[in-house]
Computed example of a mutant assay.
Amino acid sequence: MEQTFARRYRLTKTDEFSSVFGFRRAIRGKLLMLHYQPRPEGNTEARLGLVVAKKLLKRAVDRNKVKRVVREQFRLRLAGLPPVDLVIRLAAKPAPLDGKLLAEDFLALLNKLQRPRPKRED
């Protein structure tokens, strides 16, 4: 298993983030919000982008911890993910910054994403 977070698994450009936010699909968890967009045909891997606002976490060390925890969980679950672009952002200020709680919230969001949604009847 690859132990790095390679560039091909990252959203790097502003346009990539904008297109995911523009697609307007999101799932909210307790602490995190997951915005997602299916990738075009021919792409088989999921990609991840992270947004952690200074408004919610003032200290850089705390923002970096959030990013580190989410990236690690993404890397571990990458093989089972559909080809989507994901943007994770902090939705609520965590009272005590707990890596385990962040990881559980992120995994719950991934499980919701992979569950097929029931068809809506009009």
Rank of each mutant, 00 (worst) to 15 (best):
Met1Phe: 07
Met1Asp: 07
Glu2Phe: 01
Thr4Gly: 10
Phe5Gln: 06
Arg7Thr: 14
Arg8Cys: 12
Tyr9Ala: 11
Arg10Cys: 11
Arg10Ala: 06
Leu11His: 03
Lys13Leu: 13
Thr14Arg: 15
Asp15Gly: 12
Phe17Pro: 05
Phe17Met: 00
Ser18Ala: 15
Ser19Tyr: 00
Val20Gly: 02
Gly22Asp: 03
Arg24Thr: 01
Arg24Lys: 15
Arg25Asn: 02
Arg28Ile: 00
Leu31Ala: 09
Leu31Met: 07
Leu31Lys: 01
Leu32Val: 01
Met33Trp: 01
Met33Thr: 07
His35Pro: 00
Tyr36Phe: 14
Pro38Arg: 12
Arg39Cys: 11
Pro40Ile: 06
Pro40Asp: 11
Pro40His: 12
Glu41Ala: 15
Gly42Ala: 13
Asn43Tyr: 14
Thr44Asn: 13
Arg47Gly: 05
Arg47Gln: 13
Leu48Pro: 03
Leu48Met: 02
Val52Pro: 05
Lys54Glu: 02
Leu56Pro: 06
Leu56Ala: 04
Leu56Thr: 03
Leu57Asp: 11
Leu57Pro: 01
Leu57Glu: 11
Lys58Tyr: 04
Val61Ser: 14
Lys65Val: 04
Lys65Arg: 15
Lys65Asp: 01
Val66Phe: 06
Lys67Asp: 08
Lys67Ser: 14
Val70Arg: 06
Arg71Leu: 05
Glu72Asn: 11
Gln73Asp: 09
Phe74Met: 08
Arg75Phe: 08
Arg75Val: 03
Arg77Leu: 12
Leu78Cys: 04
Gly80Trp: 02
Gly80Ala: 14
Pro83Leu: 08
Val84Met: 14
Val84Leu: 10
Asp85Ser: 14
Asp85Leu: 03
Val87Ser: 08
Val87Thr: 08
Leu90Gln: 10
Leu90Arg: 05
Ala92Met: 04
Ala92Ser: 13
Ala92Gln: 14
Ala92Thr: 13
Lys93Thr: 14
Pro94Val: 09
Ala95Trp: 00
Leu97Ile: 07
Asp98Ser: 11
Asp98Lys: 09
Asp98Met: 03
Asp98Leu: 07
Gly99Lys: 07
Lys100Asp: 10
Leu102His: 05
Leu102Gln: 09
Ala103Cys: 03
Glu104Pro: 02
Glu104Asp: 13
Glu104Met: 01
Asp105Cys: 04
Asp105Glu: 09
Asp105Tyr: 08
Phe106Cys: 02
Ala108Gln: 09
Ala108Ser: 09
Leu110Gly: 06
Leu113Gly: 01
Gln114His: 00
Gln114Tyr: 00
Gln114Asp: 02
Gln114Cys: 15
Arg115Asp: 06
Arg117Asn: 05
Arg117Glu: 14
Pro118Arg: 12
Arg120Ala: 13
